[in-house]
Write a protein that binds this DNA or RNA. Structure first.
Length: 410
DNA sequence: CCTCCACAGGAAGCGCAGGAGT
DNA sequence: ACTCCTGCGCTTCCTGTGGAGG
């Protein structure tokens, strides 16, 4: 069907979606399901600050998509509409505000937009902040999302704590959020005890909970009858397996909706969800690949080429049914690809770090050589289809201009 | 048994960029 | 505007390790 109006189809009302934004991770619903306990704890920890006394520092942790950010935003939203005189709130994602300097600057620009943004040293900003708090004994709540991204976290925590003894009245309450539990091992014990005054865990959602969450959002986002309970439960079960990530569940629902719509259907079926689940996993993988640094791409390219050609070590590959490659041959291949592109290859030590980075990103899988192989080495296997990885890298790396001459032979 | 292989991964150090202090 | 400092990516050097081979 060719229509003269190519936009007509887009303008046309969707027969699946009502309001897609309700599925976005930034959307905060009216009620947050299964997080009453956490919300209450947050409120309890912060209420003294809202009344003008210093609250307790808070630390929220849990896997991605367990509602940490949503809960704190939810509480902030409720707090914002209260007639507050003294409490001020600064929320920031530490991926961007990743140093003491940047955090303090953000606080200043949040509450004193007239104060110049740059050109002041850290002590200037600090003193200005102290006197601002002192003015009418304000209570400042600083929410640091993804707090583990802050480089000089010890310094930052120290500065924030220190401020509480430097002001005559009022103070600062810190709320830290992280999905990385192990980062506290690198913290100074003093900042640790400060930051962890009140800990709050966000457990992963189980499939029943996820099912309710999906249903709640679907009611807003989708047209009536666009999905049935069986499909919702199916999506919930998949997301529950994937660490109970609600964000993933909603993304899956969005994608499934698109699939159904593309197929001209007016109802999301289980097959759409299945398809969505598959494509989301590989979407994430291919996005990751495209964003990799150059030499990691070259390395992954070497791995995908060898996977297609078949590695040296056939015996094991047959046993485990999948192509396992020897670390040594992968390095050789990588080096030859690099040199054919007139790039200097990195040292083998650095290569080993690259490989373990790729493993941590879940793109490859490694195991120790064990018996059958001389010496101690690692066996490497791609976790995604080699052809597709190869194509993705070619697209992003060579950009149809140059191709590596090294196609055969290892 | 010892030796060699084929690596793994820690430690130290180096050049660089960018941010902080002056 | 300038130097100083620090983190980062990387190399060089090194010690450790599990199995093969004689």
């Amino acid at each position: 069907m060719q229509d003269q109006e190519p936009f007509a189809k887009l303008m046309e009302e969707s027969n699946i979606f009502l309001d897609r934004s309700a599925l976005s991770p930034h959307f905060t619903p009216d009620t947050l399901l299964y997080r009453d306990k956490q919300i209450n704890s947050i409120v309890k920890a912060l209420t003294p600050s809202l009344k003008g006394d210093k609250g307790r520092n808070l630390f929220l942790y849990g896997a991605p998509g367990t509602g940490k950010t949503s809960c704190i935003k939810y509480v902030i939203d409720k707090v914002k509409v209260l007639p507050l005189v003294k409490s001020k709130i600064s929320y920031m994602g530490c991926k961007i505000y990743n140093s003491r300097y940047k955090v303090l600057n953000k606080i200043m620009s949040d509450h004193m937009p007239t104060y110049a943004k740059r050109g002041y040293g850290i002590t200037d900003i600090y003193e200005k902040l102290i006197s601002w708090i002192d003015q009418d004994s304000k209570i400042l709540i600083v929410v640091l999302d993804e707090i583990d991204m802050v480089k000089d976290l010890d310094d930052l925590i120290y500065t924030l704590t220190r401020s509480n003894s430097d002001v005559k009245s009022g103070g600062i309450t810190t709320v830290g959020i992280s999905n990385n539990v192990s980062f506290k091992e690198v913290l100074d014990p003093r900042s640790l005890s400060t930051l962890y005054e009140t800990e709050l865990a966000f457990p992963p959602y189980n499939s029943t909970e996820l099912s309710d969450i999906i249903r709640q959002r679907a009611k807003k986002a989708l047209k009536e009858g666009a999905i049935d309970i069986a499909a919702i439960n199916y999506a919930a079960a998949i997301a529950a397996k994937e660490n109970g990530d609600a964000r993933l569940a909603l993304k899956m629902l969005t994608k499934a909706g698109e699939n159904a719509e593309d197929g001209g259907k007016s109802k999301i079926e289980i097959s759409d969800i299945k398809e969505a689940a598959k494509s989301i996993e590989s979407d994430i993988a291919y996005d990751l690949v495209a964003m990799l640094p150059e030499h990691q791409k070259l390395l992954l390219y070497a791995i995908s080429l060898l996977s297609i050609q078949g590695g040296k070590y056939k015996k094991l590959s047959e046993e485990v049914n999948g192509t396992f490659l020897l670390s040594g041959e992968v390095y050789e291949k990588y080096a030859s690809i690099a040199s054919s592109l007139k790039k200097e290859s990195k040292s083998s030590r650095w290569y080993r770090k690259y490989v373990s980075d790729l493993e941590m990103q879940g793109l490859i899988e490694m195991m120790n050589s064990g018996k059958g192989i001389r010496g101690q080495t690692k066996l490497i296997r791609l976790r995604y289809p080699a052809e597709k990885i190869k194509a993705t890298i070619e697209q992003s790396l060579f950009n149809d201009s140059e191709q590596p001459s090294d196609q055969g032979q290892g």
